[in-house]
Amino acid sequence: MKYVRTFLLALQSEFISRANIVGWFIVGAIPSVILALVWLAILGDKQSINGFTKGDFVLYYLFVTFSWYIVGGNFAFPVGNGIKDGRINMTLLKPYNVVFGLCIQEQAWKALSFIIALPFALIVLYLFRDDIHIKLTLIQNVMLFISLILGAIIFAFLEALVGISAFWVTEMWPIAHVNDMLFSLFGGRMLPLTLMPPVILFIANLLPYKYIFHIPVSILLSKSSNMYLDIGLQFLYICILALIYQFVWIKGIQKYEAIGS
């Protein structure tokens, strides 16, 4: 109940600065729109590039924009800054998980942004109605939903790990930006992984970023060769990251200096 209340309070806070949400949506959507236009220009009169049709590209970048509100975010910053200036002190005293609480808070602006951005998605889907063909079975729909949730958890663990790096470094934002860049490159946010050079694909297979966004979008576009295996690997990554997180948190909190009075 305490985390539901946290979510509701964060949502109420977002209502106060609702104009920000529209602004952030525009900022978030522009790169996807640009990349979609670039790929459509490259595609030209061709039917497809490496199996990606016009409809696939539109759907891919629409998914990049909207899935960000499910599998994305940036709560590493509130975690890191809270550790840096001792803002987490008051929460550490309570029977409450500080990092999970901040993660829940972030879901508020994401949920609200998602709702605000929905009309935009409907317009795009309507404009490209002749090119977009989503043919998902019930099982694929369920798997898509599960893989999105698992992707969101992997993302959350990575953000949490980046955030708690502030126990050791004064400024964690360079680490956060590196993490973000790696996610863009090896997670398929910038462009579909299957269109990447083999070396990038090879590295992507070794990193967890692929399992955040690439797996759900592959299921959506019916391009996953084995969605059960992919989801199994997502689950495996969650277990590994959870163990790493737990270990790092215990070490970090022992080192914590709780700056400020």
Binding site: G86, R87, N89, M90, T91, L93, G260, S261
Partner: peptide, 8 residues
């Protein structure tokens, strides 16, 4: 714990 300079 109440801290004069930290708020919740």
């Amino acid at each position: 714990l109440v801290m004069g300079q930290k708020n919740q």
